[in-house]
């Protein structure tokens, strides 16, 4: 079985927000390190663990410039076979364009299913998986924390993490599956595998070659820092004082 797994390089979640905003606005800042989106690493790990149910071709797809190859390599080095890279040519692509580019790859590769992270930890949108599934006319299963294939690998039973508990669905393949935290714990790429990953076959496209509308449906107009909370934390010394303060604030 062939599986496509998407990987997005994102700013390290510990980046100070002002530095992140500056980088988003194209201002040079030395403060932003990039990592592979954690949810995508869960997706890569899942693909690797599915080798014992017949996954034998794990292809990473990333829409990113060459400057973030290290993050893509770290994902390949976990145990993927190869990668397809789409160069956005310096453009900030929005979710619909990303999904359209992925659709292009899916049509070329015809995988048994697509595994993705449930959201990217920079823009927190969790849109691309569902858009892609809709574009392909495929079933989708988002926020998945359990997967179990049937005997002939035509369907997969998934547990989805929802506001109302774990929802179990039985999904026909091919499908788009987005991964949640409890699915697995991603392994670290070892140094030998990182070195080996440099030899993994890479196929490259330019976004402008794919015939996708260049005009974004959604544009970013600006950034702001959220209003801070009240400020000082009022420290109390013991439980008695705490109860007193809570009563004073009419909270209990």
């Amino acid at each position: 079985m062939k599986v496509l797994v998407t990987v997005k390089p994102v700013a390290d979640p510990n980046t100070p927000p002002a530095a992140w905003i500056a980088a988003q606005q194209g201002k040079p800042t030395g403060e932003v390190n990039h990592v592979a989106n954690y949810f995508d690493l869960i997706a890569v790990e899942q693909a690797i663990r599915l080798k014992d149910v017949g996954v034998d071709d794990i292809c990473i797809v990333s829409i990113t410039g060459d400057d973030k190859m290290a993050q893509v390599r770290s994902a390949i080095a976990m145990g993927a076979n190869r990668a397809i890279l789409i160069d956005p040519e310096g453009k900030a692509l929005e979710w619909h364009q990303i999904a359209a580019a992925l659709k292009h790859v899916v049509e070329q590769e015809q995988p048994a299913f697509v595994l993705m992270g449930k959201q990217a930890t920079d823009d927190d949108a969790s849109q691309v998986g569902s858009i892609l599934a809709g574009m392909l006319g495929w079933p989708q299963a988002t926020f998945v924390s359990e997967m179990e294939f049937n005997a002939d690998r035509t369907r997969v039973k998934v547990g989805r993490e929802t506001d109302e508990g774990v929802e179990v669905l039985d999904v026909k393949l091919p499908a788009v599956i987005t991964c949640d935290l409890r699915l697995n714990e991603p392994r670290y790429a070892t140094l030998p595998n990182l070195i080996k990953s440099k030899k993994a076959p890479l196929e490259r496209f330019k976004f402008s070659e794919l015939g996708i509308a260049a005009d974004p449906q959604v544009t970013v107009e600006g950034f702001a820092l959220p209003a801070g909370r009240s400020g000082e934390c009022r420290m109390v010394k013991d439980a008695d004082e705490l109860v007193g303060v809570l009563k004073e604030m009419k909270l209990v």
Partner: peptide, 27 residues
């Protein structure tokens, strides 16, 4: 809802709620 040049744009939290971003829809 944010005014944006005769139309509307929308503000939302991004990056773990540490930043707010204004986005405009063109469709």
């Amino acid at each position: 809802i944010v005014d944006a040049g005769g139309g509307v744009a929308y503000q939302r939290a991004v990056f773990s709620g540490m930043a707010l971003r204004t986005e405009r829809i063109h469709t």
